[in-house]
Simulated assay, not measured.
Amino acid sequence: MIIPVTCAIILLERKVLATQRSESMNLPGFWEFPGGKVESGESPEDCLHREIKEELNIEIDLLDRWNSFEHSYQPGKIIQLIPFLVSFKGGELILSEHTAYRWLGLSELFEVNWAQADIPIVQELSRKWGSIQKNY
């Protein structure tokens, strides 16, 4: 079973947002790019806007959709992680599900303990950092 899950690489002032999973979530304590499961009949883009509003209380603007990555935490269940590069549009960041957040610069990207599914996205972000900062 493949489960489509969106995630937002949220840019603000040459930094990117990372959120820490709470004790009530799977993989507590690990860091991730915020987002969530795509519901039936929902586009990944609509899902991302909904999830970011629910989880963080903020608005975003979509900049770019990156290639998906697949990861399996348990046999027979594959997460298809769909990353979007987005900019912070507005609102007050209030966590509803996560325990903490950090704004990370390039040199800080690998300071947090990322969830396994997010690591390829962190690596991609690291490779593209220069062009992202120049273009967005």
Rank of each mutant, 00 (worst) to 15 (best):
L104V: 13
S24G: 08
V38Q: 06
P75S: 09
D118N: 13
E42V: 09
P34V: 00
K37V: 15
S87N: 05
I58C: 05
Q116W: 12
F88P: 00
G35F: 02
I94E: 05
G90K: 01
W103Y: 08
I60K: 08
L104W: 07
H49V: 14
E108M: 12
I132G: 02
W114F: 12
L48N: 01
C7S: 13
G130N: 14
E42K: 10
G29V: 10
L56P: 08
D46C: 04
G105A: 15
E97N: 06
Y101V: 00
K89I: 09
T99I: 14
H98R: 08
E108V: 10
I10N: 12
G41A: 06
W129Q: 04
K134C: 04
S24D: 13
S40H: 15
N113V: 13
G36F: 03
L63Y: 08
V86S: 08
I9F: 09
D118R: 00
R102E: 13
I58H: 07
E32Y: 01
D118V: 00
Y101F: 15
I58P: 03
R14Q: 14
K53G: 01
E111V: 03
I58M: 11
Q116I: 13
R127K: 14
L93G: 02
Q80I: 03
L62P: 00
E51L: 07
S22M: 03
H49F: 14
R21G: 07
G130R: 14
F33Y: 13
S24N: 11
A115Y: 03
E111P: 02
R127S: 14
L63W: 07
F110K: 15
L27H: 15
E13C: 08
H98V: 00
I119F: 00
A8F: 09
W129M: 01
M1C: 02
Y73L: 15
L48A: 10
Q123P: 00
Y73T: 11
L81W: 01
N26I: 05
R127F: 10
C7E: 06
